[in-house]
C-alpha cells in the first residue's frame, strides 16, 4: 500500500452516481496527501460530504459559506503560519464553478493578489448544480440550463464561458493550470506542483455532471476526455502568470469534431447543425491561439 492508496475522501458520500466531482476531490486529496487543510464552499461538495454526524473528510476542513472559500483559507493559512504549524501543511481552497467564477470571484482575486500560500481548486461542472442546474458564467454557449433554457427565442446559454484560469493567471501568481478528471496523472502532477509552489496556485478542474449535463452516469470520464480531444477544454499550465507562454500539457494528435462532444450530452441536444458549426468555428479559433 502506498501513500496514495489512502482514501482521504471517504466512501459513503452522497454524490450522484457517476459524479465527476467525486473523482476529482478523491484524486486531488490523494495527490496532496493527508497533511492538508481544506476549505470548501456551500454547494454540492458540502452537501454530499458533511451531513452531521457524518463527514467524508479524512483531512481537516472548514465550510463557512458560498462565496468565501478563498478568504476563509486566507485566515487558515495566516493562522497556521502565526501559530507555527504551517511547515509541511498544504492549504487547499475548493470551490465549485459558481463559488469561483461568480459569487466567490472577489474573494478569490483578493486571495491571489495577497500572495497567500494556498492552492485554489475550482471543480467546474459548468452550472449551479446543487440548486438544480442554473446558468453560471462558467456555462458554455449553447447549453440549456433551467435559467438559460432553450426556447423559441433562445438557443440556451447565449454567452461564452468566462476564461477563469487565464484571469487568475493574470494576477501574476506562481502557478496556474487547467486539468481534467479524464487525465488523472496529469491532474495529480499539477496538484503536486500547485501545493509545492510557494504562494498562490490556481487549478481549474473540468468535471462533468451527469445530472446537470444529462448524460449517462457511465459517460462522465468519456465526456471529460472528449472535451480535451475536441479542444473544447484545453489542458495547460502557466508559471508566474505568463499566459503568453502557456504550456499545453495534453495536445490531441488530431482534434475530434466538436459535434462528438456536444452530441454526448442532452444539454446540447437542441443545437442545430449550424449552431454546432458555429461552436466548431469558435473552438478552432481558440485552438489556433493555443497553437494547435
Amino acid at each position: 500500500m502506498t501513500k496514495e492508496d489512502l482514501e482521504l475522501f471517504a466512501s459513503g458520500h452522497r454524490a450522484c452516481a457517476g459524479c465527476g466531482e467525486g473523482t476529482a476531490v478523491r484524486q486531488i486529496l490523494k495527490a496532496a496527501g493527508p497533511n492538508t487543510v481544506a476549505t470548501i464552499c456551500t454547494g454540492c461538495l458540502e452537501v454530499i460530504s458533511t451531513g452531521y454526524p457524518e463527514t467524508a473528510w479524512e483531512i481537516p476542513i472548514i465550510h463557512a459559506a458560498f462565496e468565501n472559500s478563498a478568504s476563509v483559507a486566507a485566515g487558515v493559512e495566516v493562522a497556521l503560519k502565526e501559530l507555527g504549524r504551517k511547515e509541511g501543511v498544504n492549504v487547499i481552497a475548493f470551490g465549485g464553478d459558481g463559488g469561483t467564477f461568480d459569487i466567490g470571484f472577489q474573494a478569490l482575486s483578493g486571495m491571489l493578489e495577497r500572495g497567500h500560500d494556498i492552492t485554489y481548486v475550482c471543480v467546474d461542472n459548468e452550472a449551479y448544480m446543487n440548486t438544480g442546474i442554473q446558468r453560471c458564467s462558467s456555462t458554455p454557449y449553447g447549453a440549456s440550463t433551467t435559467t438559460s433554457p432553450v426556447g423559441k427565442l433562445s438557443i440556451g446559454e447565449s454567452r461564452p464561458k468566462k476564461p477563469i484560469a487565464a484571469i487568475c493567471a493574470a494576477h501574476g501568481i506562481p502557478y496556474t493550470a487547467t486539468a481534467s478528471i479524464a487525465y488523472i496523472n496529469d491532474l495529480k502532477k499539477k496538484v503536486k506542483k500547485a501545493v509545492e509552489t510557494e504562494g498562490p496556485a490556481f487549478l481549474h478542474v473540468f468535471a462533468p455532471c451527469p445530472t446537470g449535463w444529462r448524460h449517462g452516469s457511465d459517460s462522465t470520464i468519456e465526456i471529460a476526455r472528449l472535451a480535451v480531444e475536441t479542444g473544447v477544454f484545453v489542458l495547460w499550465e502557466a508559471e508566474d502568470g505568463d499566459i503568453c507562454n502557456l504550456k499545453i500539457t495534453q495536445k490531441p494528435k488530431k482534434r475530434k469534431p466538436v459535434k462528438d462532444y456536444l452530441k454526448s450530452q442532452r444539454r446540447f441536444a437542441h443545437l442545430s447543425d449550424e449552431d454546432i458549426e458555429h461552436i466548431q468555428k469558435e473552438v478552432d479559433e481558440k485552438c489556433e491561439k493555443y497553437g494547435f
Binding site: A64, N68, A70, S71, V72, G75, V78, A79, A107
Partner: peptide, 25 residues
C-alpha cells in the same frame, strides 16, 4: 499578522478561518 482583505465579508471569513485554526482573532 494583519490580513488586509478586499471586503468586510472576507474580513469576517478570514476571522472564521483563522479562529477555527486556533488563533486569537
Amino acid at each position: 499578522s494583519m490580513i488586509n482583505v478586499e471586503s468586510e465579508h472576507s474580513a469576517m471569513s478570514a476571522c472564521i478561518g483563522a479562529s477555527a485554526t486556533g488563533a486569537r482573532v
